[in-house]
Design a protein around this nucleic acid. Sequence first.
DNA 1: CCCGATCTTTGGTCCGACCATATGCGGTGT
DNA 2: ACACCGCATATGGTCGGACCAAAGATCGGG
Lengths: 248, 248
Amino acid sequence: MPVEWQPVRQSRTHELVLQSIEERVFAGELRAGDRLPPERELAPVLGVSRSALREALRVLETIGVLVAQPGRGPDAGARIVRNPDDALGRLLRLHFALGSYSLEDVLEARVVLERSSFEAAARHASPDDLDEAEALVVRMGEPDVGVPEFNDLDTRFHVHIARSSGNELTSTLTSAVRESVRPLILRALEEAKDWPATAAALNAEHAELLGLVRAGKGANAADLVERHIRSLHGTLVDEKSDRARGDS
Amino acid sequence: MPVEWQPVRQSRTHELVLQSIEERVFAGELRAGDRLPPERELAPVLGVSRSALREALRVLETIGVLVAQPGRGPDAGARIVRNPDDALGRLLRLHFALGSYSLEDVLEARVVLERSSFEAAARHASPDDLDEAEALVVRMGEPDVGVPEFNDLDTRFHVHIARSSGNELTSTLTSAVRESVRPLILRALEEAKDWPATAAALNAEHAELLGLVRAGKGANAADLVERHIRSLHGTLVDEKSDRARGDS
DNA sequence: CCCGATCTTTGGTCCGACCATATGCGGTGT
DNA sequence: ACACCGCATATGGTCGGACCAAAGATCGGG
């Protein structure tokens, strides 16, 4: 009796439909790019109403496994896709907002994931990847960048490095985790005392990071990105407690 | 022109509803435990049909942010909750099945996450946590455990350590990533030549891991869990290529 | 042969009804 | 007074049918 009892509640037909479609995915019968039959055909085949079917499809859509387009032609209808990033991002954002994760948890996760990303990027990144990252750093270094754009570029820099590490999963996770704290970072940057100096300091680290990756010094890059992230999150924690005091 | 254009397509009312509810969550107006108004009340307030509202609620439910129960009383209705684990697990399982992530990606992610988990657990785990982990290892060591139960206990051991690391986010990620390859590991174990020997070997490592965590030797535990995971995934890769040859 | 109006397919929405479930209330018998 | 049984009610879940909107397909006219 090691496992706790858990509610059996089945009934809900849209879950059965979901299960049925999932099985096809697991069995490899449904692959990315495949089209599902039109709702009006599939529903009676499965023996459910169109509403129930639609709720199952909506679930698959939020998971990033399906997209639907009205109209006619090869691109219309419900298609199986692989787009986990938005789904994961939304999931983490909401749960972070609900307090499922503390800021410290996010910090540690970022450190762990991005250390790995930078280490792998130092080995696997292609010249094109590095050039693109370079362009982001250059843009961030220009004096006219506002806070929102800087935040956007910063996110893209970190995510881009993760992407060029060659690991889709960790890059997706990195992107999602970074996204989940984006509003916090944005507000922290907005309230920085001396914005140009802050931006310059942050971007100097970006340039150094990129240099280390380019030189193949993965271990050094990992250490630096850990410091980079920890210092930024340090200001966030202060910010958060400030706000807590202010709100109370 | 740094950012790519992206489709504007709004229209879909259930997405607007979703956005509206999300905003309340981000603003802190909706917190875990809160109840939403009944669908029949909320829909007209938002100016949408009940179906559209329901599809939005379904999205929130699959994200693990909402649960709904029929009936009457304080537990009935739609409630905000924090249950990211199932949602994340399903997401990764499906995307892994669709080939969004390679087995190597999952391997690296597991290594990175679990190294961190074991290192943190060596510092933060409570005696109760360790005792529970101990019970799992003991059970895994008994000779009558079948493959499915062993796989289940193994999963729970790794997830339990992650939980006791004190980091909700990495433990959720660990659990989800481990879940996504569960069927593969299950099949690999089932096809092991000498199952009792395999189980004993694996569990010896579990016992050693637990000992290191108990002794506070986080770095050693991290190294060992990395070897532990890599060796297991090594058999998985073989298994997968075997199957690829067989299926072709 | 090209262009535009119209048709057809397909997802998106709405409405109204009914079903299933679980609580709350009230009546009834002891 | 208390226990039990059954009905009312609130709530999510499902169903069926209708209509709307988008976008390629089709066909007719120039």
